[in-house]
Computed example of a mutant assay.
Amino acid sequence: MPAHAIGGGGTFGEAEGDVISASAKSSRIKVTQVSGPIDGGGTLSSAEVNWEPPPCWYEPVYSPQQLKDFAENDGNGDVSVRQSWYGSGLWTDHFRDEKDATNYFGSPSAVKGYKNYNIGKDGYFWRGVAPDLEELDSSQCNRLMFWEDAGEIPDVPEAPTPETLAEYAYNKVKVPQTEVELKPEAKSTVNLPTWVWLDKGTFKEVKVRAELPGTGLWAETTAKPVALHLDPGTNDAETYPASGNCEIDEDGSIGTPYTKGNADKTPPCGIRYLRASNGNPYQVKASITWQISWEGADGANGDLPDGTFETTQDMNVQEIQSINR
């Protein structure tokens, strides 16, 4: 089959460590959940609806020997986020035989070739990575695969930084899906308060570490639970406090557990329903706000938009039955 070039494609995923991927939608960033749920956790949504993690970045893909093995034994893959080469001839011409290549989708449009894959030199060939090409500006991360000496980060737009890794890790944070405790449980009565709480230790900081092999770059993104917001599922209800925002204490607890004799008292965190649900349970939404911060290589640090995670529980509300004589 003759060699030819077309636009890039593939499925986004992680090609960790020494695993090589021919797709520019696969990242080698290694993500580790340092603390928090390993299985069964929920993914955060940004409280800032317009915030998104970086659309693309550059990262090292091949050592000289790895590129030689790929080019001469496979030769089908992405040479940039928007350009794929199919057939070993394109790869060997450019990276082995010093022939210039054309970048149809970016700048520079003509790229000088390499001699024998730079074998004998210490470094990596870098390429852009983009999770979603449809959302990517055509001017971003569109350089053809290029060389960078070991220990160096390329001086180009969209070069990776610790903040890039921190933002990448944002969507990898897994937080507990624990439901809040309700009293009365699943069934309440009109005008009597429903107490809401979580025992201490239920919500603790969650930390995720992201590392980009071959660069020395790393970042740890930390999510700290700071508040619970209650939505009773109907306008015919009051929340305690009135804002519906219950603070999370330093020990990870929320509100105060219900104890016998407190039925008529006002809970520090809770709901009072004003109308019966009439057979169709209200959907109580409990949304935890997580404060996001990060620290990374060379002392870099900062904050990211708060994250939220929401759970929904059924609540049936009945009228108090009374008999008049």
Rank of each mutant, 00 (worst) to 15 (best):
F125M: 08
L136P: 00
E135C: 07
G120K: 04
K121T: 10
R143D: 02
G151V: 11
G120R: 06
G113D: 05
Q140P: 00
S139F: 06
G151L: 12
R143K: 14
G123E: 09
C141G: 02
L136Y: 00
S139P: 05
G151H: 13
A110E: 15
W126K: 08
D155L: 11
I153D: 00
S139I: 06
R143I: 09
S139N: 14
D132Y: 09
R143Q: 13
R127V: 09
G123R: 11
D132N: 14
E134M: 14
D137I: 01
G113Y: 04
G151T: 12
I153C: 00
G123P: 06
E135T: 13
V129M: 12
G120E: 05
K115N: 12
K115Q: 14
D155C: 05
K121F: 08
N116W: 14
A110I: 15
S109L: 12
G113M: 04
G120M: 03
G113T: 03
P131K: 06
S139L: 11
I153F: 02
Y114G: 09
L133A: 00
E135R: 14
V111N: 03
E134R: 13
L144S: 04
M145E: 12
G128F: 01
Y114K: 14
W126L: 07
A130E: 02
D155S: 11
K112G: 10
L133M: 02
S138A: 10
I153N: 01
P154T: 04
I119D: 08
P154C: 04
Y114C: 07
G120A: 03
Y114P: 07
Y124G: 05
M145W: 12
N116A: 13
P157K: 03
K121Q: 10
I119V: 10
D137V: 00
L144M: 06
C141V: 00
A130V: 01
L144V: 04
